[in-house]
Design a protein around this nucleic acid. Structure first.
Lengths: 225, 225
DNA sequence: TTAAGACCTTAGAAATTTCTTAGAAATGGC
DNA sequence: GCCATTTCTAAGAAATTTCTAAGGTCTTAA
């Protein structure tokens, strides 16, 4: 998340910037109104926080200005005043929220999150991993090759996912045992071999080109040829 | 503009309704939480205002509940308290604003306008969900497939609604237990399986194609094939 | 060339997960 | 309070996956 902070008290800026950064929020700031507008019009922010009283342009005018120019980023106004009339004016001008100083940092953070959330109500994107003509849809737990659906059991799916995430790199059996099976000790089991075999039957056998290759003495690798 | 007011003090309801009507705002109201949820789920409101302390269900749970069911109308919470923690909690559950009693009517009005303005920029929540030849009317709590009505009990309906809202995505049983049953702890119960079975008997069995699929070891998906 | 180790394949036993059913418990309307 | 409906529990059946084990094949290096 990236926000714009318009505030003329440098101490406040510093404090907020530090606090917000700790929560993984990027902060651009401007020390006066016009600089703020300038930044707001040339960058995309998730939220804009502005003190009501800043040099150059007050928070109301600033908000009105932004709205007139089609900038829809949510605006939070900060003020030392507690007059209802100011709040009303702020909201009417197009601000989205209002915080009275002294405010608690926690509250500011919560409001930030609430506001930024509203812009992004799109469902999470489909997670899809691919290698050549092979595709894995992690959202739907589906695997296809050349458009044909391939039914995989959970372990097979996990193994294939590990291969596809490490395509082109040779992965050892020990590594696979650790990452896919959570086996950390030396073991004489041959599960990995068995499952590689299962996978090959489904992923390679029915097709022209094989993509799961054995590197003798080292491990396996997912690649063309 | 049409709003829903959830508030148990009849005097307050009367006062607000009158005042808001004068500003051309239609007001539906509920005297307790469950009635409020019921109304919210079956009507379209521009804004929902709820007291935090109402019989049946508190404002936080109410908000969480609404959000869980995909109702995105802005929510304003009212309270006599002034604790920051409550505000934070309110915003975190998905409320959009917060007013501390006693508030001025003017301020409430301004916030209403601010919130409803922003709501207009996003499409209204869908009251009819579809998947292929299956349709769910949330308003009338009706479900049909190929035009044929399918009688569902409330829990069955909730489960089907969850499936249809997450069509194409594999949802785990734990996730279903959390979202549809509000069970947050580890449980050995098999309610989810039982209800999936009930649903299949009604949704899949009487028809050619099944749409509820088991993904062994992972969960269930709503999809074709 | 040949032996040893690495890898592949297969079948079936074991373990796990899911389905199904019946009935008990809870809920809601009259 | 009673009846009808809905919800949940429990337990065995069924289905599927996972793993083991044993024997076969391939690769490498002496």
């Amino acid at each position: 998340m990236k926000i714009l902070l318009i505030e003329d008290e440098e101490k406040a800026v510093k404090f907020l910037k530090k606090g917000l950064n700790e929560h993984n929020i990027d902060v651009d700031f401007a020390l006066d109104g016009s600089a703020g507008v300038e930044l707001a019009m040339t960058n995309e922010y998730d939220v804009i926080i502005s003190d009501i009283i800043v040099p150059g342009m007050n928070g109301f005018d600033l908000t009105r200005h932004l709205r007139m120019h089609g900038i829809k980023a949510p605006v939070i106004l900060l003020t030392a005043l507690n007059a209802t009339d100011d709040k009303v004016l702020g909201l009417e001008v197009g601000a989205d929220d209002y915080l009275t100083k002294p405010y608690e940092f926690k509250e500011l953070l919560a409001r930030l999150k609430a506001l930024s959330r509203r812009g992004k109500e799109t469902p999470p994107p489909k997670l899809i991993l691919t290698f050549g003509d092979t595709e894995m849809n992690l959202t739907g737990k589906e695997c296809t090759r050349q458009g044909k659906k391939i039914e995989l059991t959970p372990k097979e799916f996990a193994l294939m996912e590990y291969f596809i995430r490490n395509q082109g790199r040779v992965v050892s059996k020990v590594e696979i045992a650790e990452k896919v099976w959570d086996i950390n000790f030396e073991t004489s089991s041959n599960v990995v071999e068995v499952y590689v075999n299962y996978l090959r039957n489904k992923i390679d056998k029915p097709f022209e080109k094989k993509i799961i290759h054995t590197v003798f003495g080292v491990g396996y690798v997912l690649k063309d040829e």
